[in-house]
Design a protein around this nucleic acid. Structure first.
Lengths: 341, 341
DNA sequence: GCAGATCGGTAAAGCGGTTAACTGGGGTGT
DNA sequence: ACACCCCAGTTAACCGCTTTACCGATCTGC
């Protein structure tokens, strides 16, 4: 292994000077800098990040904590992760994916070891025990998602209000007047306290009221199967519905296939519009779903950047809310009789 | 931060002794061990893994290198990862997911820094440049998948022969005599050298011959869209087919929806059986696909264990090949006229 | 022209562990 | 009773890098 000592020797300088050019932390004349850089490349030097971490008490590693149990790691989560990893790399950090339980014991374990400088928390619950743990241990962190109590927490999240406004506006513009929302399963404590369900439902009720629409909200679990059942329930209880919004992306797939199976043509008979879905997931459906695209890449990047700002002692940016964006495809169309009530 | 020094002081021993009980690396009397353990728990000591790594030249971190660009990180990959992470944790290692390009520059970067003890390589190409890099740098590694040249490489992989035998046997047992395989896109260099396509196609040709069946093989990209196109081609060119095997899981979803869209009922008119799919992906389809389940959890675990054995200097296990297992569901059924030729 | 500031560079003390070499107090065998 | 070994513990030298003093030489202002 080539160490800084070797480089220093070959360049005829002290090891400290090498460190200074490496980190750009003290001025060095162009000449010596050149000598050192040449020595480094000749020797194929790579700084040992472990030693650096020990000496500087900064590992430059940040963990993305993902609750492996409660949420499936699908395409959407992958988008968050890869964009976050890219953002981290651009700033000379490593980002690693860390599967943790939702209770926080593994999280305690993780941060106690001094391996990571900070944590990006995904799939945050409205009242998330992990936030408390991170605060107690003094670990820097940023949230993707929001707890109820936000005082001073670095976070980024989906702008549910704008998302729902755009979704409803789009459907209304097509002529739909009989909408329904398929939200989360309120009997499941995990999802009852899960921001996306709670916030998009609230936004939907508000926006629907503004448009003077009747508000139909059904519950559904977060699986394709549950979505199919919700579709059946919708047809049974609200057959007049011409367009349906679905919060969960897997449920949305089920709603689509459930409606089709029951003999309803999407989009001719009824439009389906997921409020949060990745393009990859949408591409798997037939017809391809019109979606509100989850701003995964944006949020992954912003969350990571917020954390890094915090780590570097920069002034924190205000929390950012990013709306999902409409990507029209094949699951939405005007209702059979436009303006029908 | 509580250090070993603090623990040693409180227990009235030297810091070395603390290290010995921590790592169980030298005998310590029950009495002192108890004192030390008590001191540790009273102080809430957690060993600093960075310092340990520096001193022992072992970070106890292993990276799972995933080629983020060429392959989508879906449910199947997630299965590999989580099971590998679990296996690692059980043996006192951390496993992190590391997105790398397929060329290997980022991999060089990663292993040069001394951050990881070893690498688990996923989605191995038949002739993978990354393998060479790891060998040159002397990094321990294990493969999930296989290169063509296997001499002495630790690896685990899918047992394509058994998988295809079981799949074809199952369909044959249902009465199917007109099968087709939808494999990878041979025009795409990435997939032409991708083991699962090459090996399952070879196995299919062999097994089909054994059964005395005509061998129909179509190409397809690895997307839902491509699968739909392959389905159309199949109907056009081989309308007599009663059952179709699909290698790629996303293509399989497309084959299913493509057939349905063209007015063919699955499974009544034609059976669809993906050779490699995760249950989560299967659950998203309608009808739910009968699948050969990718042995992701098994392979993730075995690959990690193989690497750890190598790291610990244990005698390597022979390479293991695990077949995918049949999970019957709704996409397979006897052909319309059993035994039809 | 001289004190003081500035600037490029060095020496050395850690960071929190691991681990080889060593110590000293019993047991053993003869 | 003596040499020897064994065993639990200790001492101290690293691991490779960061960072704070510190130092001598050159610049700067008056």
């Amino acid at each position: 292994m080539v160490t800084m000592r070797d480089v220093a020797q070959r360049a005829g300088v002290s090891i400290a000077t090498v460190s200074f050019v490496l980190n750009d932390t003290k001025p060095v004349t162009a000449a010596t800098r050149r000598r050192i850089e040449q020595a480094m490349s000749e020797l194929g030097f790579r700084r040992n990040v472990v030693a650096r971490a020990l000496a500087s008490r900064r590992t430059h590693i940040i963990a993305m904590a993902y609750p492996a149990l409660d949420h499936k790691f699908g395409f959407t989560a992958a988008e968050f992760f890869t964009s976050a990893a890219d953002a981290a790399r651009k700033q000379d950090y490593h980002l690693v994916l860390w599967p943790v339980g939702n209770d926080g014991t593994e999280l305690t374990e993780l941060v106690g070891q001094g391996l990571v400088d900070g944590v990006v928390l995904m799939e945050v619950q409205l009242d998330d025990p992990r936030v408390g743990i991170l605060q107690e241990t003094g670990t820097p962190f940023a949230l993707i998602g929001r707890t109820t109590e936000l005082a001073g927490l670095d976070h980024v999240d989906i702008d549910f209000d704008t998302t729902v406004e755009e979704a409803v506006g789009y459907l209304h513009g097509l002529g739909h007047r009989r909408l329904a929302l398929i939200s989360g399963n309120l009997k499941d404590p995990v999802f009852r306290t899960y921001g996306p369900y709670v916030r998009s439902e609230a936004a939907y009720r508000r926006v629907a009221a503004e448009y003077g629409l009747e508000t139909v909200v059904l519950e559904s679990g977060g699986s394709t199967r549950a979505g199919q059942e919700a579709a059946a329930q919708l047809i049974r209880e609200h057959p007049e519905t011409t367009a349906v919004l679905v919060v969960n992306e897997f449920a949305a797939l089920g709603v689509l296939s459930g409606l089709t199976r029951l003999g309803h043509n999407v989009p001719a008979d009824i439009s389906v519009l997921p409020l949060l879905m990745s393009p990859e997931t949408a591409a798997m459906s037939d017809p391809e779903l019109t979606i509100m695209r989850t701003p995964g890449p944006e949020l992954g990047q912003l969350g990571t950047e917020a954390l890094i700002r915090q780590l570097e002692g920069a002034t924190p940016l205000p929390p950012q809310l990013i709306p999902a964006t409409l990507h029209p495809a094949g699951s939405t169309a005007p209702p059979r009789s436009p303006g029908d009530r």
